[in-house]
């Protein structure tokens, strides 16, 4: 209990002109904790994710990150060079569409190796060894290492994107609908993989999803968003099994039972 939060979010708001993107969002994220942000399309969950990950600038409020040197830094006032360095070393971002997070015209090995080269690794053999190791961890065969992700299936691309993000051992990973648009069986495999990696590496994750099953499987804690506001927030199984808010009850009761 002596450890400190990794991310401290204080009254974060983002407006698109007169419309609310997200409003007054506050929470702490702890090391190793998986937080799911759920809600329907347009509820502001992606806006929130983008504000947290500095892909968007919030209008009000602050996001503080616990740097490896032990200091808290306000992300909004951090110099861009430092922020970009943070994003490619200590953070990961897994996009819904793998093409947004991968370089589609360079090989799988180079996709994974890029972050290593970006932090100054200049030994080809070592880069290749590490990349191969990570491809193995996301269940991509070494024989595919020199193929471009263009030749990969959707599920493989997504796994490659995850490997590309995790190769620098980040402490915080943002995921935007990581299983969206995949077949159910491919989804199950990916979810299990993410779950295993998150546990093994002790990653903190903020995952945006509209799929409550994904939230239940991956997250410890969840926030339900509606119209830009967080309407319910708590332990994932508590929110799903004993939803309090009308909207959350509607959401939970709308899950199709198989």
């Amino acid at each position: 209990m002596s450890e400190l939060p990794l991310l401290k979010v204080h009254e974060l708001s983002k407006f698109y002109g007169g419309r609310i993107g997200c409003r007054n969002v506050s929470f702490d994220l702890w090391p190793g904790e998986v937080l799911a942000i759920v809600g329907e399309s347009g509820s502001g969950k992606t806006t929130l994710l983008n504000c947290l990950s500095t892909r968007l600038t919030a209008d009000v409020g602050s996001v503080e990150y616990h740097m490896r040197d032990g200091q808290y830094r306000n992300l909004a006032t951090m110099p861009e060079a430092e922020r970009r360095f943070l994003m490619r070393t200590d953070w990961g971002f897994v996009h819904q569409n793998p093409a947004d997070g991968l370089r589609m015209t360079v090989s799988a090995g180079a996709n994974v190796g890029e972050r290593l080269m970006a932090v100054g690794e200049r030994h080809y053999g070592r880069i290749r060894e590490t990349a191969g190791d990570w491809l193995g961890r996301v269940e991509i065969g070494l024989d595919r290492m020199d193929d471009q992700p263009r030749a990969f299936s959707g599920g493989m691309r997504q796994r490659l994107q995850i490997a590309r993000n995790l190769v620098t051992s980040p402490r915080l990973v943002f995921m935007d609908e990581p299983t969206g648009g995949l077949d159910v069986s491919v989804q199950a495999r990916l979810l299990d993989l993410i779950r295993g990696l998150v546990q093994d590496l002790g990653l903190a994750v903020i995952v945006v999803t509209h799929d409550l099953a994904v939230a239940r499987l991956l997250s410890h804690r969840m926030m339900v968003m509606k119209d830009g506001h967080v309407i319910e927030h708590g332990l994932t199984d508590r929110v799903l099994d004993d939803p309090r808010e009308p909207y959350t009850q509607l959401l939970v009761s709308s899950i199709l039972q198989v």
């Binding site: 970009r84 180079a110 190796g113 890029e114 080269m117 080809y124 290492m145 020199d146």
Partner: peptide
């Protein structure tokens, strides 16, 4: 501007890999 030149080595990596 930010001296982010990792990408240059990606190109050379691809060369060696191929």
């Amino acid at each position: 501007a930010l001296e982010e030149y990792g990408l240059m080595h990606v190109k050379l990596y691809e060369d060696i890999a191929r």
